[in-house]
Write a protein that binds this DNA or RNA. Sequence first.
RNA 1: GCCGCGAUGGUGGAAUCGGUAGACACGAAGGACUUAAAAUCCUUUGGCCCGAAACGGCUGUGUGGGUUCAAGUCCCACUCGCGGUACCA
Length: 957
Amino acid sequence: MEYNFSDIEQKWQKAWNDANAYAVSNESDKPHYYVLDMFPYPSGAGLHVGHPLGYIASDIYSRYKRQCGFNVLHPMGFDAYGLPAEQYAIQTGQHPEVTTNKNIERYISQLRKIGFCYDWSRSVKTCDPQFYHWTQWAFIQMFNHYYDNVAQKAKPISELVARFEREDPTWATLSEREQQERLMQYRIAYLADTKVNWCPELGTVLANDEVSEGLSVRGGYPVEQRVMRQWCLRVSAYAPRLLEGLDRLDWTDSLKDTQRNWIGRSEGAEMQFDIKKHPSGSPLKGESESEAPITIFTTRADTVFGVTFMVLAPESEYVGRLTTDEQRAEVEQYLAWVKHRTERERIADRKVTGVFSGSYAINPLTNAEIPIYISDYVLAGYGTGAIMAVPAHDSRDYAFAKHFNLPIIPLIEGADVSEQSFDAKEGKMMNSGFLNGLDVKDAIAKMKEYITNTGIGRVTVNYRLRDAIFSRQRYWGEPFPIYYKDGMPYPIPEDCLPLELPAVTEFKPTATGEPPLGHAQVWAWDEKNKKVVDKKLIDNKSVYPLELCTMPGFAGSSAYYLRYMDPHNNEALVSRQANDYWQQVDLYLGGSEHATGHLIYSRFWNKFLFDLGLVCKDEPFRKLINQGMIQGRSNFVYRYIGEGATGNLYVSYNLINNPEYKDKVQPIHVDVNIVHNDVLDITAFRNWMPEFKNATFVFADGTSSEVEDNPYLGAAMPKQYICGWAVEKMSKSMFNVVNPDDVIANYGADTLRLYEMFLGPLEMSKPWDTNGIDGVHRFLKKAWNMYETVTDEQPTKEEFKSLHKLIKKITWDIENFSFNTSIPAFMIAQSELAALKCNKRAILEPFAILLAPYAPHIAEEMYHRCHSLNAQPSTLNSFVIDAQWPELNEAYLVEDTQKYPVQFNGKVRFTLECPKDTPKDEVEKLVLAHEDTARYLAGNAPKKVIVVPGRIVNVVM
RNA sequence: GCCGCGAUGGUGGAAUCGGUAGACACGAAGGACUUAAAAUCCUUUGGCCCGAAACGGCUGUGUGGGUUCAAGUCCCACUCGCGGUACCA
């Protein structure tokens, strides 16, 4: 009976589809379970074998949970907005919607072939107006709410207005515009002039997590700093809750640590430094203003006695008023220089730069006059944008002090600061007045007490987490549901949503530098008629301009997991009922690259919706697992470049270190798809690219003749060319991309699924190496052969033992996400059962059920064969996915005898077999009486005999 | 620099609670079947040593120490690799 995987897989995929087997209902008596894969971006290249790794794992888990009696929600959709489609549109004029939909089609067809149990009727895509309706809606809610820092939750902006009306007599005197401006400082979605990462090549701003090392993550283009008016989300308000919420999540420690670092809580103190009154009268802007103290933030309050200068960030508002007339020209020159520097230059070039402001501050403890500098090593966005510099105990301050020849006062006993600073928070204080002799930790506490009591400062907490910049000067994203009246933003009414993305013919910025939506003709808001109208009608009386920016990539992916609970709801993002049933994502699988982007934003978004009482859980993802990356495994041919090289001779890998070829060959990437088990397909290679058409080879045997005479056959057999290999990123340019479609065509989806799991632990990254796939495929063939005839005979004890060993192992593995170890367990069970010639339904049916989560197609066919050899799907109305997970009966696993490995001084010498439950001292006697014991004791008396019941014996001499 | 993860045969990996290291698979070598090949099946396969043979000895989980009757597993110090992050005061 041949294992025809292609027929089997097509047959059952159709049957499942026809029967709607994977549709999930929100109404069920069963317990619920929600398994989610991270939203893929449908790239033009389609899926490669790395993508399905996590999907296969989550599919196995989903199927297992369903077989255990859960109602399992397991959806899939697409993060459809994004830069690549738009870049492609700019280059080709092809509308991004067209390419995006094409790519989605391709993804869906590839995913379907792998046999996932997704409920496709719940699929969503972010560029669908029915979907982004709720993205826009959430944005309006954020616009209409502020964060109450006392209550630690979002509240309606109307409550704030009411408070202003009640408590602030000036409120009523403000104009509408002034009132709006004031409210803008509180809204969770707000407009602000912020320093942004501007990417000129992409023509848009980017969030911090979209920039890496001064280059855009997508595309790798340079990024510079620019101040622009942008929509922002007040994520920072949620920093304490985002931090504290991590403690209750079942995520890996490494991921939680990454988020903790990104949120960056630091406890410290704000402290005020008085400004020295300038002797020459009034060189500063205004007498009283110039003398107002400046506030700094420090985590090292203990080091105040060692402050020898202060530094302001170039963007600090203190800069203007502290710059003296004498220094003004120099300061302005420095500020100009800082401003034109790109982020990349800043990272690449860490040399000390800065300028003296001309002013002095007074150290509140020593009363010393200390100069105030301006330097870009101090960041405007963190703390107060001003620092007290303690060169002896901060390496950055140290470098600055050395460069400008400023004094360095050591504060910790025994610290040598002649060559470098001593940054560690340990040791005993000195040169520090009343702190002398204290440990650093105690000194910090004492100093905090002192500054609180004297009123020169206060204890505070700072967070590194910044507000998210939410505007993109791009076309292919969600439009903001916002129009501008007198320069101030107003949301369009909620019942007018979705505000659909208008058609444009040009995807580049306009000639006047407006974002691409500037090209849209029908893009103005008619307030009276509540509709989008032609721009020509803008009169700023009843027709107003609409926002031209669109939302960033993370907008659509921040709440999509809620939408799957209730994907067709036209009244709400998710109904209360649906949300109460599913609650939250129980298991979330995806890559760790989303640690500081998506996983922060969606936690924020979810907490906001929670504050509004719209979702029942304040965290979206209860348990999260990161699957490892699948790296590429590249193959190489070795072009001969030594003497007499024709440029078309290739040396087999096993020969390249021979003297005649060593250092005379050049490795060239070769498409891994024309290499099998590191052996090159010569014909395919010659046809691969024109330059290889006339390739000649030195084969593995060291000769160049292409064939070997075959003594048995008139014909000749081809010889082998061995390729070298290396592990690299999977990418087109390395010719190491493997497409799951090809694997499925050659081996079937079940083999692909099994093999991806077989490669190694889910969380670890590993190269895709097809070399082992034959073994997994052979296992399926052998398993398949067991089902040729199925009988109703009673199984033997041994057969039951094999089965129940397998039940125990597979159940444990799935519960613990150890999918790689299940495959050998199946192989072992198969070979045991085959050796016993087992063809009994009582064994083979549970075997098929156990295999079903891993290899659903073949398992379905096996399951049906157990019922009738010729059963058709129509005659059997149940699928293996609904078959009850087999129950473990430990009784079958109990052995009559116990085997003890017997060690002498920790080395295993022989094995002792004795009846089960032999008492400890009896085992000891048996060991000492054993015929081999005397030999290993070699005349020594045993000092001690350790018997671990059921495990091992160790004789200590 | 800081944080996290990892290192086990020729290769991917297993050893789940400190208890027989190398399961399972690939590859390789040898054999059976075959006119031949493919497919399939069987045997061997960490290294070294002794031997006619053995259920013979030694050694062995990145390096160096330690704890323990017993360490791939726990502790300390280090090396290398991977990922993240970086003037965050």
